[in-house]
Design a protein around this nucleic acid. Structure first.
Length: 570
RNA sequence: CGGGAUGUAGCGUAGCUUGGUAGCGCGCAGCGUUCGGGACGCUGAGGUCGUGGGUUCAAAUCCCGCCAUCCCGACCA
């Protein structure tokens, strides 16, 4: 296939500065990518080979589900984004630009607007539905902090699919197909992953799943139950608290002078109470200036998205200085709170007794608060994050925590875009309806990094056979020995005739360099031609996976490679 | 956006405090010796010291602006 000496590939022995995680450092050292600007990378020939193989797998699995491939422009007119109102909502993450006539454009971070626009032009009847369209395209997001190389880049390659259907049932069918599709993609790539319940934000009421690849350096955290298989995004995770409600005689309400004690830790020290006997009162407000107080056990953290979900609007924490003295930030509590403020209380507090909380008065707290004697609650719910030691919401076993990389996200969009952009169809009774949409993304270039993140060792990358840039590296031990070179050439011919993806390391460098490069790049099989081939016609085989070494004749070697490639190791 | 740092050959860096010849390692080219897990010797090519201005007889070095890159920061009742 290719001769190393003629190929475009340079590897480096030394790491580059700031290549802080293995996948980044190795993809630079193996000569797969090159950084062009912050968060912008070029795929060099080796990296591009791998990328194309990943694309191929994604494409095959998508096609199997009946999804149809197309290609939309990366450059999109601002008008469409005005229609969906995302032009206003998206913020600086959206790459915006103007053409010579001063018209607004953006570089697409996703393609909902475009696809919905296209569907509105072409789809008129329920007979045209359902349909699931996808593309593999470059996306742009002006990330606040691009990092970890290709894992979190500003320009990246993504497969995104958009489904249109006439009813929820068809949406469910496609959603399930996509769920299955993503699972098969990740299984073919030999990745360890979880499909977790994810936050839909305020947009979609329905559910969504994230596909998370387990990795120490991941930026996402998941909570899962090893017993029953429950898995969720850290922010979303439901759980049961282990702590029992304490049964003790109800005490009398007392006001305590607590000068300048404004946080849980100092209050716990001051009152000599454990943090979970304190009610933490967090104040949020919505865009309309309405306040919401959230009561939490003192040892828990506020989970704003969970509150937003119940409140039905986006919320912000009230800043310390924002409301000034009249709110008594630092001394808030449920008892005697301004009645205009809605009180949300975490279920964990339910049944607890003799709690301490702020007195809504500077420098004072109250002890021995008891519900419902001393305060009211408008809404009970789950408003905190799961902690180590919490229990599975389904089966009650302790939950585990794991870091990971978000690789895919499937989402039921509903009619958000179709309504705004007029993507309507006539149903069988002649009524006009907005199409029901779903969107399904998977990060193609991110997969490349994620695979390395999961599959590498001290020597380099361990590619699964299905995406390895080459299956076989033919190493001629010494290019100045005519016997060795002529034998290697002969074997090279045979391997090519067999149709194997082979790179022939014909460089005039020492054997050690060839071995190191081969391991770094992560080619699954090394075939080594040295002196002993001339002696007994046996090829030395070494496997990257575990360093296994074997010797066998040419035809057995061919058979071995065939069967090895079919097994798709890792 | 706030805080902190850094920019010197393709890559990694020294020199800057105390202004005066730009140095080292890797890589690259040539020659020779080597040749089964990143060899060695000799020779050589390669630098607007991020950029613009200022101070000075003289600036990689001191001062100011700009640009780029990197790190940290979203939990406080």
């Amino acid at each position: 296939m290719v001769r190393f000496s003629e190929y475009y590939l340079t590897t480096t022995k030394e790491e580059t500065a700031n290549s802080d995680i293995p996948s980044y450092s190795l993809s630079l050292r193996a000569g797969m990518i090159k950084k062009i600007a912050s968060g912008v990378y070029a795929f060099l020939p080796l990296g591009y080979r791998i990328l194309k193989k990943i694309e191929k797998i994604v494409r095959e699995e998508m096609d199997k589900t009946g999804a149809i491939e197309m290609l939309m422009p990366a450059l999109q007119p601002g008008d469409l984004w005005l229609q969906s109102e995302r032009w206003q909502k998206y913020g600086p993450e959206l790459f915006r630009l103007k053409d010579r006539n001063d018209r607004d454009f953006c570089l697409g971070p996703t393609h909902e607007e475009l696809i919905t626009y296209l569907a509105s032009l072409d789809i008129k009847s329920y007979k045209d539905l359902p349909v699931n369209l996808y593309q593999i395209q470059v996306k742009f997001r002006d990330e606040i902090r691009p990092r970890y190389g290709i894992l979190r880049a500003r320009e990246f390659i993504m497969k995104d699919a958009y489904s249109f259907s006439a009813d929820e049932t068809d949406l469910d069918i496609i959603y399930k197909k996509m769920y299955g599709c993503y699972s098969s993609i990740l299984e073919r790539l030999k990745l360890k992953y979880y499909a977790v319940e994810a936050d839909t934000g305020l947009i979609g009421g329905k559910y969504s799943h994230e596909f998370i690849i387990l990795a120490k350096n991941g930026e996402d955290e998941i909570v899962y139950c090893p017993i029953c298989g429950y898995a969720a995004n850290y922010e979303m995770a439901k759980f049961k608290s282990k702590k029992q409600n304490i049964d003790e005689p109800i005490g009398e309400v007392l006001q305590v002078h607590t000068p300048a004690v404004t946080n849980i830790k100092s209050l716990a020290d001051f009152l000599k109470l454990p943090a979970d006997k304190i009610i933490k009162t967090m104040l949020l407000n919505d865009k309309g200036g309405n306040h919401y107080a959230v009561l939490l056990s003192g040892d828990r953290e506020l989970n704003i998205p969970k509150v937003e979900k119940i409140a039905g609007c986006s919320l912000e924490l009230v800043e310390n200085n924002a409301t000034g003295a009249e709110m008594n930030i630092g001394f808030l509590g449920p008892a005697g709170l301004d009645s205009k403020i809605k009180i949300f209380a975490d279920n964990i507090i339910k049944g607890r007794c003799n709690m301490a909380a702020g007195a809504n008065k500077k420098d004072y707290h109250i002890v021995n608060l008891n519900y419902p004697r001393d305060f009211e609650v408008d809404v009970w719910g789950d408003f905190s994050f799961a902690y180590e030691g919490d229990l599975c919401v389904n089966c009650g076993s302790p939950v585990n925590f794991e870091k990971g990389i978000e690789i895919g996200h499937i989402f039921k969009l509903g009619t958000k875009y179709s309504k705004k952009m007029g993507a309507l169809f006539l149903d069988s009774e002649g009524r006009l309806n907005p199409m029901i949409m779903g969107c399904y993304g998977i990060g193609v270039s991110r997969i490349l990094a994620a695979v390395i993140e999961q599959l590498h060792d001290a020597k380099g990358i361990l590619w699964p056979v299905c995406i390895a840039p080459f299956l076989v590296n033919l190493v001629a031990i010494n290019m100045e020995d005519p016997d060795i070179t002529s034998n290697a050439e002969k074997i090279y011919e045979i391997l090519m005739r067999e149709g194997f993806e082979v790179i022939f390391d014909d460089r005039n460098v020492r054997a050690g360099v060839k071995f190191k490069d081969s391991d770094l790049i992560g080619i699954p099989i090394k075939l080594i031609i040295g002196k002993n081939y001339a002696e007994n016609e046996e090829i030395e085989i070494e496997l990257r996976k575990d360093g296994t070494k074997m010797k066998m004749g040419v035809s057995q070697t061919i058979d071995f490679i065939k069967s090895y490639s079919q097994k798709n190791f890792f």
